[in-house]
C-alpha cells in the first residue's frame, strides 16, 4: 500500500514552517489583547504597564462613573442603538438587493460596481465628504443621521456580497413549489424564502452590528457633537492616562464576543433543528 506523503508520522519542513507562521500570527493577534485584559484588572495603585500591583475592579468603577475618564455610558447609549439600526437596515436592504440581483436587469452591472466602489473608497475621506455635504445643506451632523448613512455605505456592500453567496446556494424551485401549492408572493416570502435564508440573514445581521459598532473612519467626521464608542475610546487615548482605558477595552471586547456568541448560537440552533439527529425523534 502506498503511504500518503501527508501522513501523520512523516511531515516535511513546510508543515513546521507554516506552523511557525501560524503560531506567530496567533501570538501577535492575541498577545496584545491578553495584555490589555490583564492590565484592566490592575490594582488601584497600578499604572499603565506591567507589573500588576494587585488585582481589582477599580478601573472599571472609574470608567462607569462618568467624569474625568469621559462619557463612556453616553457613547454606549448611542453606539448600541446605532448598531441595531444599522443591523436591521443592512439585513432588510441587502435581502431586497439579493432578491433583485438574482435576475439581470438593465444597469445591474453598473449598480453592482457602484455598490462595491463604496467598499474601496477611503472611509475617512468619505466621512469628511458627508460632513461637508451636511454643512453645505445646513443640516446638523449627528449619530442617527449622517453617521448612520456613512456606516450604511460600509455595511451594505458587505451585506449584499454575503447575500449573493447565500442566494447562490438557494434553489429557486422552493419558490416555484410554494407557488404551485397556491402560496401568494407574500406567503412565499414569509413562509418559505425567509425561513430558509434565516441562518444567512443572521450572519448578515452580525456583520452589520459589529461593523457599525467598531466603525471609526467613516464616523469620525459624521457623528456630530456626541461620540460613538470607538471615537470616545480614541479621544480617551488622547487624554486619559490610567488603566481605565484598558478596562474599556476589556468591556467592549466582552460585548463584541457576546454579540458574536449569541448570533452563532442562533445559527447553530437553527441548523440543529433542521439537521437534528434521526434517532432523537420518533
Amino acid at each position: 500500500m502506498r503511504r500518503s506523503q501527508f501522513s501523520a508520522d512523516r511531515r516535511g519542513w513546510p508543515f513546521y514552517a507554516l506552523g511557525a507562521v501560524f503560531a506567530a500570527y496567533v501570538v501577535f493577534l492575541y498577545g496584545p489583547m491578553v495584555c490589555i485584559y490583564l492590565l484592566s484588572f490592575q490594582g488601584p495603585q497600578g499604572g499603565l504597564s506591567f507589573p500588576m500591583r494587585g488585582a481589582s475592579l477599580h478601573w472599571f468603577e472609574q470608567l462607569i462613573q462618568q467624569g474625568d475618564t469621559g462619557d463612556l455610558m453616553g457613547a454606549l447609549s448611542r453606539s448600541i442603538p446605532l448598531a441595531l439600526i444599522v443591523m436591521v437596515l443592512t439585513v432588510v436592504i441587502s435581502l431586497a438587493g439579493g432578491l433583485a440581483f438574482r435576475n439581470r436587469f438593465p444597469g445591474s452591472g453598473v449598480l453592482f460596481y457602484l455598490v462595491i466602489a463604496s467598499l474601496v473608497a477611503p472611509g475617512y475621506v468619505l466621512s469628511i465628504g458627508i460632513g461637508l455635504m451636511f454643512q453645505l445643506l445646513g443640516w446638523e451632523t449627528s449619530w442617527y443621521t449622517s453617521a448612520l448613512g456613512a456606516q450604511l455605505s460600509w455595511t451594505l456592500p458587505f451585506g449584499l456580497l454575503i447575500m449573493f453567496a447565500i442566494f447562490g446556494r438557494f434553489n429557486r424551485s422552493y419558490e416555484e413549489a410554494a407557488r404551485d401549492l397556491g402560496a401568494s408572493q407574500l406567503q412565499t416570502m414569509v413562509l418559505v424564502v425567509i425561513p430558509i435564508l434565516l441562518p444567512g440573514m443572521i450572519a448578515v445581521a452580525l456583520f452589520g452590528f459589529t461593523l457599525s459598532y467598531d466603525e471609526f473612519a467613516r464616523t469620525l467626521q459624521t457623528t456630530g457633537s456626541t461620540n460613538t464608542v470607538p471615537i470616545e475610546i480614541w479621544s480617551m487615548t488622547q487624554n486619559v492616562t490610567s488603566p481605565s482605558i484598558y478596562a474599556l477595552g476589556t468591556l467592549t471586547t466582552a460585548l463584541s464576543f457576546l454579540v458574536i456568541g449569541v448570533s452563532l448560537g442562533a445559527i447553530a440552533l437553527i441548523q440543529r433543528r433542521r439537521l437534528g439527529s434521526v434517532t432523537g425523534r420518533s
Binding site: 434553489n171 424551485s173 416555484e176 413549489a177 401549492l181 425561513p195
Partner: peptide, 13 residues
Amino acid sequence: TAMMFQNYALFPH
C-alpha cells in the same frame, strides 16, 4: 395541476 420537482423541493425547515 400540481408539479413534482426534480429535487422534490421539500421545504427544509
